[in-house]
Computed example of a mutant assay.
Amino acid sequence: MYPNEILIIDGSINNETTDLFQNSNFKNLKYFKVNENQRGLTKQRNFGISKVTENIDVVCFLDDDTVLEPDYFKHLINTFERNEDVIGVGGVAINENRWEQKQKGKTYDKKKYYKLDGYIYPEGLRNRVRNYLGLTSSLPSNCMPDFSHGRTSGYPLTGKIYEVDLLIGMSMSFRKSLFDHIRFSTYFEGYGLYEDADFSIRALNYGKNVIDTKVQLSHFHDAAGRPNMFKYGKMVLRNGWYVWRVKYSNPSFKAKFKWYAIHGVLIIIRFFNVITNNRKAALTDALGRTIGWWSLIFNKPNIK
């Protein structure tokens, strides 16, 4: 299934993308090169929405570092057509999928493995530590508990559809009617960490979000697209706090304690990574998270 319209919203500072698409023969393609004032993920998403043709029913957002499976749009549209109460659909990055089928007769430590539908997911260090400390969510992946820190394991390739709170920006699609009500928040202008989570949460006011494991692609993440690690670490705390409060405006004391406790654990792990991993990146990330933590005491973000 081929899209009725493809919009390229180019925020790059050179002409390589311009040359590529102006000389291409892709059908139904419209290319836009935005200026500095319109550059940035949130602004470019909203710019693209404003250019969508009237007769379009579903708007799909895809990052520029993804490669789609041939039947991506076929399964995507099928999910929307069969589920009228669904407002948003996300896909699965098959090259990043770490789920494995359970082996018969083998036992799995629940603190080291997460189980779902006959599959197991090997937990990383962060989640193993949280499991031992009792700071793990009981909800499935991409669902936000009242202390915000949910699972990020994704879903096994079962062919099933899973209801979620959060869709991932690399592969998320919404009914066009949704944009008569909401747009991407200007709070996240710039790099915009977690802008996809913020939008997904607000979309829940108009229908369900689901991840369809038949909607598949590969994601070849380019770290060059991120800001420096100090800014990134700071955004993890501040933007994470913002999204948490969009979903839960008045969390309980227990939920607040868990939110800060988990971030404390993650900061300690990042400082520990200075010894074990990329020293400069780990150190600047940890410092950014620490500054972000303290900034929330004196200057919390205003929810828009």
Rank of each mutant, 00 (worst) to 15 (best):
T158G: 04
N299D: 14
L133P: 02
R82K: 15
G91S: 10
E84F: 10
L287E: 01
S138A: 14
Q101W: 10
V129M: 06
K115H: 15
I6W: 07
F199D: 01
D180N: 15
N83T: 05
N25V: 08
T213F: 03
R128A: 02
D10E: 06
R82A: 15
S12I: 07
N97F: 11
E16P: 02
Y31P: 03
V210P: 04
N299I: 10
K43G: 01
A281C: 08
S295H: 05
F179M: 11
W259V: 04
I49D: 03
G11A: 09
V129P: 00
I120C: 02
L133C: 12
F220L: 08
S295M: 14
E5W: 09
R126H: 14
H181Q: 15
Q101V: 13
P140Y: 07
Y113C: 09
L68C: 10
G240F: 00
A255Y: 01
Q101D: 10
S252Y: 05
H181P: 07
D85G: 09
L178F: 06
K106T: 13
P3K: 08
P145Q: 04
P251F: 02
K256C: 13
A286V: 04
A286D: 06
S218Y: 04
I13K: 15
L166Q: 09
L139Q: 13
D65R: 06
S153H: 11
G40A: 06
L68Q: 12
Y155K: 07
I6L: 14
S138I: 12
F257S: 12
V274P: 03
T290H: 00
S218L: 00
V34E: 01
T152H: 11
N273C: 14
L178V: 08
L116V: 09
G288H: 04
K304G: 09
Y242M: 11
R270G: 01
L62C: 05
L20V: 14
F32K: 04
Y162P: 00
T158P: 11
G159I: 10
N228Y: 12
M229A: 09
G233N: 04
R245M: 02
D10M: 08
Q101T: 13
F32G: 05
T107F: 13
G11H: 06
R98F: 11
I275H: 03
R98T: 08
K110T: 12
G190T: 02
W244F: 05
D71M: 10
G190W: 01
K102N: 11
V58A: 06
G88K: 02
R279D: 04
V243H: 00
T53K: 14
T79L: 11
N302D: 12
Y108D: 06
K160P: 00
R175L: 10
I56K: 08
G192W: 05
G88L: 03
Y2D: 12
E189D: 14
Y155N: 05
Y260L: 15
F199H: 11
L283R: 09
N37I: 10
K112L: 14
H263E: 11
M170N: 04
F80C: 09
T152Q: 10
N15F: 13
T136G: 06
